Every structure is written in C-alpha cells, then in structure tokens.
Simulated assay, not measured.
Amino acid sequence: MTSSPRPTPAIVLVEPQLAENIGMAARAMANFGLSELRLVSPRNGWPKKGAHSAASGASHILENAKLFPTLREAIADLHFVLATTARERDQMKRVHGPEAGLSQAAARLRAGERVGILFGRERAGLDNDEVSLADAIITFPVDPEFPSLNLAQSVLLVGYEWSRQSGASIPFGEDMRSSGATREAVLSFLDYLEGQLDAIGYFPADKRAIMIRNMRDIFHRRDLSEQDVRTLRGVVRALCESAHGRKT
C-alpha cells in the first residue's frame, strides 16, 4: 500500500509574461517537491512555446497546471493565502520573512487546510488589490538597494524554505561519514606518530612534552573518523618507509 503524497502549497503565478519564466518557476518547484501550479491569465495565453524547454524535466508540473481567468477564482478554494512582494504596501497586513511565513503554511497544511502562495508579474509584481486578497505577506531579506527578484528566483526561495519547514533532509553528507574514531584508536595513532618522530630526533629534549601536547591538541580538535585514523597512520608509515628504507 502506497502512502498519499503530502499536501503542498499551490504556487499561483498572476499574469506571468514570459514562457521561460513559467518554465523555470516549474523547475524550481520540482526541485523542492512542489507540484501544484496555478496560472492566472498568462499573457498571450497558455500553453506557451518555450516553457517546457525552460522547465528542464519539470514538464509534468506544466502539463498539470490549472488556468484561471482571475485571481479570485484561482484562490477560491484555498483557506490560507500568502502574497510575495519586495515593496511595502501600507496595508494592515502581517508581514513575514520566508521562515515564519512557510512555517504557518506548513501548520495549516498539517491541519488539513489548502494553502496558496501568490507571485506577481515579472515587471511590477502584484498590485495592491491582489495583495489585499492574501492573509499575509512574505518578503525576502534582500538588499534594499536592489530588491528585485526574478520570478523563478522567488519561487525557488519559497520552495527551499518550504522544504526546510516540511522536514526534508539533504540527500547526502554527514550520514556518509564513517563512524567516529575511538579515543583508543586516536591515541594509538598518536603514540605511533610520536615514536616515529622520536626516532628521527624531531623533539628537542627540553620542549618535547609541550610539543607533544600541542600536536595531540591539533588532532583532538579534528573529530577524526575511523577512516581518518587509518589513512593518517598509513601516510606516516609510507613516509617513514620511503625515507629510511625500512619497515616501521
């Protein structure tokens, strides 16, 4: 038995102008698991030539996009709506950063409500009447000297924050690291290293103790894995054998 797909916010593009921007917005949606695209009166109609190529494999989102003549109709079935804007609107409306805004969206979705996020035209964004239809505003912490974002960039930022709020994890990273080295393994390596350094007279007699402590601190700060210790021991052995022509 397969589980039902988790609910996600609907991405609503209001009067998008360029096919390439719609396609790139769909690609950004697919990057972060968003699937529902709603288009409000795209300029020159829909579908648009060039959108699918710009989507780079996210054509399924374009093919399932819903077309609406007005914004009111596009959000009629939604319970909670967020409007994205880079400009202050002088409206008595809550303003959130992406983290707080998408946190609310996630909570609403978990409660069984339908959520939408509005994005405006490439040139001018949403107008004030369109913003007034939303429950709250999302804005991004951009440089006030250059606040303008491309449509697909805005969708990408929202998608990333949605991914965070919905508990998605990175596909690879720390979990691929070998387990941490035991203190016994680290100390055994350090004993071996110090023995090899003693053999070549590296430590001045009057400074040996402090130099060993400093060297040990270097390795203890590294959070070494088992593989790290094996690799370092092999490196030191190879260097010593090469320099002295002997087994160590």
Results as ranks from 00 to 15, higher is better:
E36M: 12
L37S: 03
L37I: 13
L37P: 02
R38E: 05
S41K: 13
N44K: 14
W46H: 12
K48N: 10
K49V: 12
G50S: 05
G50T: 03
A51E: 07
H52A: 15
S53V: 14
A54H: 04
A55R: 04
S56H: 12
I61Y: 06
E63A: 15
T70C: 12
T70S: 15
R72A: 11
I75H: 02
I75F: 00
A76M: 13
L78C: 03
F80M: 09
V81E: 01
A83I: 02
T84E: 02
T85Y: 08
R87K: 15
E88L: 11
E88Y: 11
R89K: 12
R89A: 07
D90Q: 14
M92N: 15
K93F: 08
V95S: 13
H96N: 13
G97S: 12
P98N: 06
E99G: 10
E99P: 07
A100M: 13
G101N: 03
G101A: 08
G101P: 00
G101D: 00
S103W: 13
Q104W: 12
A107D: 14
R108S: 10
R110M: 15
A111Q: 15
G112D: 04
G112T: 05
E113N: 14
R114Y: 05
V115F: 02
F119Y: 01
E122N: 04
A124K: 12
G125E: 01
L126S: 02
L126N: 04
D127N: 15
N128C: 10
D129W: 09
V131F: 06
S132Q: 10
L133Q: 15
L133A: 13
L133D: 12
L133I: 09
D135S: 12
A136D: 03
I138T: 00
V142H: 10
E145I: 08
P147D: 10
S148G: 07
L149N: 04
L151N: 01
L151A: 01
Q153D: 09
S154R: 00
V155Q: 02
L156K: 10
L157T: 06
V158G: 02
V158W: 00
G159M: 04
G159T: 06
E161Y: 04
E161N: 11
E161S: 07
S163P: 07
R164W: 07
